[in-house]
Design a protein around this nucleic acid. Structure first.
Lengths: 210, 210
DNA sequence: CGCAGCGTTGAACGTATTCAAAAGAGGTGG
DNA sequence: CCACCTCTTTTGAATACGTTCAACGCTGCG
């Protein structure tokens, strides 16, 4: 038993401090998870593609300690928490699958800490592009060679801990060196292997099929 | 049924690429979890205090995608994985508790992405000190006012994405402004509230008792 | 048409890094 | 007990990377 709802772009579907009543699954569109400092600076901590669970945390941890915002218009499947807990009792496999999902999320966060903490501007952005490309394809959203980048440069900046100005320059730099082609908003990966090399990207941390 | 072992400081107890045969629990001492870039740069993604599970990930996700290294000499409890899986089948509560633990880990990683991505030098270091102080006390390792800092400045640098030189300067800066006293290796928190304010630290993301 | 958000560009600035060098602390062996 | 080695901390100076500020063009939408 679940309901389907839609939301427009740039809308918070999970709010900090809120106690969830539903388990939300992203069915179509893209979203991002972010936190804010006391000073109001915003850091995107993950991107989400169709198939991702948006608030697994609330199942066991009370209220949300962050926000989840839509990037595009989305459709979301919502299962009442009580209902979901009942299913988990009945089918331990479901609980185990969710737990596995949580472990993968944690693995991705670790990679992001590394990305934001230790890689330089170009590498950092390339890595982010690689991850999104990979997950996008993995979610069955079309081939990795050419696709429309759903997020603004400002959002990429918030995700990489850089300024929007630099994202712009780095994207042009990558285009000038022939790794990507960027007639916005279309992004074309021209040299996937080179992009992976620049971004120091190895997909093993995503724990998906090779 | 579990065995207890010891390890000296700066020893890898979980290695990247290794498939675990045991579930390891830190019983005494401190440890850190880290990843490395292709260029050899190292980023610590979490610190660990007694009571923490060091390789919950391997339960469901095959081989480790990172390292766990001891900071001090430690004692570790090890439960064979097969044994542990049997316990989980028998007692769903244990599995749920572990899952909950994984969710908290993920929450901490999110905070670290924010910390490394968006906070300035001083705030970043103060936040790290706050978190460690809080978790240390929460693990029953003595009062938060005064304690020995187990990690070197180099490790703090690796954890915050800064250089060791800057950690040194920032620590002195914090000492000069009277927030901490640092006659190394003893650290004394003089003004806990001020340190929290500087570090923009709110413990809710740790999901512990207030 | 006019407004708002996004992308683009240049120049000045600032923060943190890097390099280099030396002093202190702890451990080991002669 | 002292000499020596290594690791950590400390300090200064030059450098580099990314930020900030400001302004303008573009596009889509009301």
């Amino acid at each position: 038993m679940f309901t389907v709802k839609t939301a427009s772009a740039n809308h918070d579907v999970v709010k900090q401090g809120e106690v969830a009543t539903n388990l939300q699954v992203l069915l179509d569109g893209y979203a991002c998870r972010y936190k804010i400092t006391a000073g109001g600076a915003r850091q995107i901590v993950s991107f989400h593609v169709p198939g991702d669970i948006l608030d697994a945390q609330q199942l066991l941890l009370g209220c949300a300690d962050h926000f989840v915002q839509t990037i595009t218009s989305v459709t979301i499947g919502a299962v009442p928490l009580a209902e979901f807990r009942r299913i988990m009792k009945l089918r331990p496999n479901v609980a185990e699958a969710l737990w596995r999902d949580t472990l993968i999320d944690a693995s991705i966060y670790r990679e992001w800490v590394l990305n934001v903490g230790k890689r330089d501007m170009t590498s950092r952005i390339a890595h982010m592009l690689c991850e999104f490309t990979f997950r996008r394809e993995n979610a069955g959203r079309g081939p990795p060679e050419q696709w429309e980048l759903p997020m603004t440069q400002h959002k990429i900046a918030d995700a990489t801990g850089l300024s929007a100005v630099h994202i712009n320059r780095a994207l042009h730099e990558l285009a000038r060196s022939g790794v990507i082609a960027s007639d916005r908003p279309e992004v074309e990966i021209i040299d996937w292997l080179q992009l992976r090399r620049i971004g120091d990207f190895g997909p093993s941390y995503l724990h998906r099929a090779p």
